[in-house]
């Protein structure tokens, strides 16, 4: 198989920006709204999600020649559910606070469209290494997106960032940024989650529109310049003839 140079890097980075699962593909929205009350919970959710995605991508890619077309979906679902259960039990054993914070949303990674989507669209067609890189990129992209959501929700909703509540192995500390009494507690509620998500999507759309416009303008200017040059050249030619 011929590979273009720098494919691995591109493969990794696409999950972060161009094909970001949450902000561009709008997949996996349920945990993005439900588990982003605090940055810590978002980090935890992102890590669990990435672990499941990496494991399922590797296994699906390993078994891609064995699993035939018609049993694809059930086989993938079983594989994903297995890893989710393992991750769930491990969390319950070693990070009980994270387990009780995320609750049923750990189980719901099974039906997260991103995991099944990557298995179907990428891992079932590519080799193990590429699938691993793809999973890493997508998982990291999703985690960063969750952190971005949680950043605004926690900052505006509680006015402070508190750590050490869920990851009990780091010392607990609280970083008060907005003075007490000035926080907008709505951002901790469901409505705030929708608003933060809407604003982030709106900003992304705005930047995209702006870029497209600039590109369009550049192309237009280029065309006008070329036309003028052609006119000038034509004028010169006719002028030379006279």
């Amino acid at each position: 198989m011929s590979r273009e140079k720098g494919y691995t890097k591109k493969n990794f980075l696409k999950g972060l920006f161009i094909e970001n699962p949450l902000f561009v593909s709008i997949l996996g929205t349920c945990p993005a709204l439900a588990t982003t009350k605090s940055v810590e919970a978002a980090i935890g959710m992102g890590i669990l999600f990435t672990v499941v995605l990496i494991c399922s991508n590797i296994l699906v890619s390993l078994l891609r020649k064995i699993i035939s077309e018609e049993i694809r979906t059930p086989a993938y679902i079983v594989i994903i559910a297995t890893f989710v259960t393992i991750v769930k039990m491990a969390t319950n054993a070693f990070l009980p606070e994270l387990y009780s914070t995320l609750g049923v949303f750990i189980s719901l990674i099974v039906v997260n469209c991103i995991v099944l989507g990557r298995a179907e669209a990428y891992a079932s067609k590519n080799n193990v290494f590429d699938s691993l890189i793809d999973a890493l990129g997508m998982g990291l992209g999703y985690t960063l997106a969750l952190i971005a959501m949680a950043f605004f929700r926690e900052l505006l909703g509680t006015g402070a960032f508190s750590f050490g509540k869920i990851f009990t192995f780091i010392p607990a500390f609280k970083l008060q940024i907005i003075p007490k009494g000035y926080e907008i507690s709505m951002f901790q509620n469901p409505a705030g989650a929708f608003i933060v998500f809407a604003i982030i999507l709106g900003v992304i759309a705005f930047i995209k529109n702006r870029k497209d416009e600039l590109k369009l303008n550049k192309a237009k200017q280029e065309r006008i310049r070329k036309e003028q040059e052609a006119k000038l050249a034509a004028a010169k030619e006719t002028g030379g003839n006279q």
Binding site: A198, I199, L201, G202, A205, F206, N209
Partner: peptide, 8 residues
């Protein structure tokens, strides 16, 4: 324009 579709 930026809010068209999903954001709104």
């Amino acid at each position: 324009k930026a809010l068209k579709g999903l954001p709104i």
